[in-house]
């Protein structure tokens, strides 16, 4: 592997790792606050699985010589993060310990759209030219069936429930699509990532996402709002939400990085 190739591989792994790390964090902020106790317990497993997936990707980066997995997760600053904008967005206004005004419709739509994208990426990664990544993809894929079924069920049931629910779901879909533009973007090392066949081309995956989503939208009579890119998280361009998230996520770790916690 040339230095340029190694950099491209690391860039892709950071995108995957940071995505699941932030996605799991946003899921964990809902703990104890979901609309229904049984759902609180069930969706917590999805947040846990996703944090587990992030840990697997950070481990691959550690093995690549990027540093310790825990340091990669907890120390890197916002401009070094490669996650998509969608996963860093807050669940709603208000701090999670005080009076969070979280929106379950936004949670369902974000989780559904993200999980579908994740499933499409994971299927593509099963054929990655980087063998350790292909092995990880096969493992992670095993847990995605449940995640996707879970959010697909919530997505369709809420859309079909009441006019209020439908209205909230529409607003949430609008909000999610406004941040979705960088989801399949590979950032500044995209050309090398594709040339190395680490994963299929971003255009192909995006098309596949649209195609997979369409039957559900048709059934629910939903028109997909315009997809936009608020900024490109894959290149380290982030919103203020990420800074706040990172200071919470690293609060204890950063007290003493050399200590054993």
């Amino acid at each position: 592997m040339t230095e340029q190739e190694r950099t491209a591989l690391a860039a892709l792994l950071y995108q995957l790792a940071d995505d699941d790390f932030l996605y799991a964090f946003r899921g964990s902020e809902w703990l104890g606050l979901a609309p229904h106790i049984e759902e609180d317990v069930a969706s917590s497993s999805i947040a846990q699985d996703s944090m587990g997936h992030a840990a697997m990707y950070y481990q691959l980066l550690e093995e690549l010589g990027e540093g310790k997995a825990d340091a990669l997760a907890h120390v890197r600053l916002a401009h070094e993060r490669k996650n998509s904008i969608l996963v860093e967005r807050v669940n709603g206004p208000g701090y999670y310990m005080e009076t969070p005004e979280y929106d379950w419709a936004y949670a369902v739509v974000r989780n559904y759209c993200y999980t579908l994208a994740k499933k499409i990426r994971i299927d593509a990664l099963k054929n990655s030219s980087y063998a350790p990544l292909a092995v990880a993809a096969v493992k992670i894929n095993m847990e995605l069936y449940y995640h996707l079924l879970h959010w697909q069920t919530w997505f369709t049931q809420l859309y079909q429930a009441t006019p209020t629910a439908r209205q909230k779901m529409d607003a949430a879909l609008e909000q999610v699509l406004a941040d979705f533009g960088d989801m399949f973007d590979y950032g500044e090392h995209g050309d090398v990532i594709e040339e190395m066949r680490l994963i299929e081309g971003q255009g192909i995956l995006l098309d596949r996402w649209y195609q997979t989503l369409t039957p559900t939208l048709v059934e629910l009579d939903v028109t997909l709002p315009e997809m936009r890119m608020s900024s490109n998280g894959r290149n380290g361009e982030h919103s203020a939400d990420l800074n706040d998230a990172l200071s919470t996520l690293g609060e204890v770790y950063l007290i003493d990085q050399s200590a054993v916690w």
Binding site: E38, E39, V41, A42, S44, L149, H150, T153, Q157
Partner: peptide, 13 residues
């Protein structure tokens, strides 16, 4: 609310 949701909750609970 319904059996589909009940199935989604069952294992994790």
């Amino acid at each position: 609310p319904n059996k589909e949701m009940a199935l989604l909750m069952a294992q994790e609970n």
